[in-house]
Structures are given as C-alpha cells and as structure tokens.
Write a protein that binds this DNA or RNA. Structure first.
Lengths: 168, 168
DNA sequence: TTGAAAATATTGAATATTCAACAATTGAAG
DNA sequence: CTTCAATTGTTGAATATTCAATATTTTCAA
C-alpha cells in the first residue's frame, strides 16, 4: 500500500488559501451535516442500530421483524407487495424469505388467482416471535420518547410521513 | 422450491378471529408504518435513492460524495474520524478509499504525529469532482424544498439534529 | 385464438459489506 | 526501561446485496 510521506510544514503553509469574501446569496456549500439527506442517513443509522441491538436478543435482523409484522395481519401478501412494505428489493427479499422458511417462521402459497404470484403467510411460530419482537420494538421507541420527548417524536413522525408523501 | 397448495376457502374462514374489544391503553401493536424506526428507514431510502440518481451523472456513489465533502475542508482526516463522519464502518471505508485512491480522488499520508494513523486528503481532481457533486446535491435538496416546503424542511432538519443529539 | 409484451418471482454471478484476526504503533503501569 | 494493554488501520473469509438473465403466467391486441 502506497502512502505519501508527510507534507512539510512550509508546504502546508503555502497551500493556505485566502477565503473569498462572504457572498450575498450563500453559496450553499454548507457542511454535510446540514444536508437533509445526510441527517436522515445519520438518524436512521443510529435508531436502526439501537433497534438492531434490542432485536438481537431474539437473534433476528430488523428486516425480519418488518416482514413478520407486515404478515401478522394474517392475510397473504405477494412478494412484490411485501418487498415494498419492508423496504427491500425483490432478490434480497427472496433470499431472506428462504431463510425464514427454513426457520419455519413463514411459508409460501401460490396465489390461486394469479399463479405468477406467491403469497406469503406467517406461521404460528412466526406469530409468537413477532409478538416478542414487537415488545422489544415498542420498548425501544418508549426509550426514545423518554429522552426525546413525546411532542418531538410525534412531530418528527408527522414530518417524515409528509416528506414521504411529497416524494411520490 | 416447496410451495404450499392454496388453502381452501373454508379453511380460511375457519381461521377468522373475532377481535377483542378495544383496550383502554392501546396495546401499541400499531402498524409498522407508525414506528419511528420504520419511517426513518423509509424516508432515508427514498431521499437517498433520489440523491443516488442525481450523483449517478458523475458515476459516484453517495458515500464518495460524503467523503469528498468532508475532506474538502483541506485538512487531513484520519480514517477513524472519516468513518464516523461519513457513516461507514472502518473496513468498508478502507475499501472505498482504496477505489478512490485508484481514481486519484484522494490520497493517504501517514500522520507524523501518530504513525498508527493515516491522514486522508483530497486531490485537485477530487476537489473538482466534489464541486460538481455539491451542485447536484444542492439541486436535489432544492427540488425537495419545492414540493415539501421550506418551513417543513427546516423543521425536519432541526428535529433530526435533536434526535441525533438525544441518542448519544 | 394466437402471439407478443408485461408482470411476477427466482437464480447465479458480480459486487459490496461485515466479522474476526492481524500488524503496527502508542500509552501507561510497574 | 520494559512489558502489556489499548488504539488505529488493514486484510481475508464469510456473508449479504445487487444486477442481469431466466422461467412462468397473465394480459392484451390483432
């Protein structure tokens, strides 16, 4: 691995640039921490990590909690529907569902109305796990509310929903 | 691949459950779309996708924009610092930086003060690219503001920042 | 009715990420 | 000083994700 030798102090000094004076309309060259996309990524990463840690008690990734939760309405959901709902693309979902079928958490049924489709169902074992996972997820959110406040949490949720709406 | 035969209509009917009456304190078994963690993941996915599409004009993933942007202050940043700043874990960053070094966008300098550390710098080529990427990112955010509103955007940013703060 | 196009899900290869182990350097205790 | 622990970054193997191609079924137009 090639690594440069350290620059000399004088060379560093030569490089110092005089900032051009502040412009009237801000050049929008803000620090990355002010970009919406960055803040969303950062917040998502943090909250997702916390949730992941809670769910690890049951040895289950966040995505599987989502899948079980969506299927827990008892209705069959096609793979396409499910992929949208759980924020995974199709091939990723297929493979994750394969694992969950192996673990007897969910099962596939060919849709009799449209045989291209596969309907996913949750098993009793999956339902039981889903309940335990929900407790963990709810307690995480309660923990957030404790430090962040009920008002802020609800306001944030509302804004996120409307951002999502406006992005379609 | 094993797929169950479709359940008969009668079997489906037998399974229908009578919902227990509404409880005083909600059981918090809300749809997943009301969970903060889910809303954050969904919003992040959507906005990140849009940004990704914009940046694809320059053939660069979002993470490389972040790296270039952070390094564009002209100071050297250690790999650890950088990993935190750009929301990547260490091995992932190492490999992405390898690619960027190949593309002559950034370079490594061993820190003379602490030779365990590697300081990352952006090259002139990287700086030029960074500017173009910033334009694209800014225009994306402007596009969001157009439909979502200036007020909502700023309010959302503020709430995200304070969520992140309260999570540490 | 037939044939082409669209929709749906899966597969395998290519790519990316993560985990655990490692190497190098520094810090700190004795 | 010496040695042991902690810090920093990288590597390789294991795992996961994505892209492109495929198979199947349905839809729709001619």
């Amino acid at each position: 691995m090639h690594i440069e030798t350290a620059p000399t102090a004088s060379r560093s000094l030569i490089r110092v640039k005089t900032k051009s004076q502040a412009v009237a309309k801000p050049p929008k060259d803000n620090p990355i921490t002010e970009h919406l996309a960055y803040l969303l990524a950062q917040a998502n990463r943090e909250i997702n990590r916390q949730l992941e840690m809670r769910l690890s008690k049951e040895g289950v990734p966040v995505e599987q909690w989502r899948i079980l939760k969506v299927l827990s309405d008892g209705n069959g959901h096609s793979m396409g529907e499910l992929a949208d709902a759980v924020l995974l693309n199709h091939p990723t979902l297929t493979k994750m569902v394969d694992r969950m079928v192996s673990d007897a958490l969910v099962y596939r049924v060919q849709d009799p109305k449209d045989r291209r489709k596969v309907l996913m169902f949750v098993s009793d074992r999956g339902k039981a796990l889903s309940k335990r996972l929900n407790s963990l997820a709810v307690s995480q959110e309660e923990h957030i509310v404790e430090s962040y406040g009920d008002k802020s949490t609800n306001e944030l949720k509302r804004l996120l929903e409307s951002l999502i709406d406006s992005s379609n």
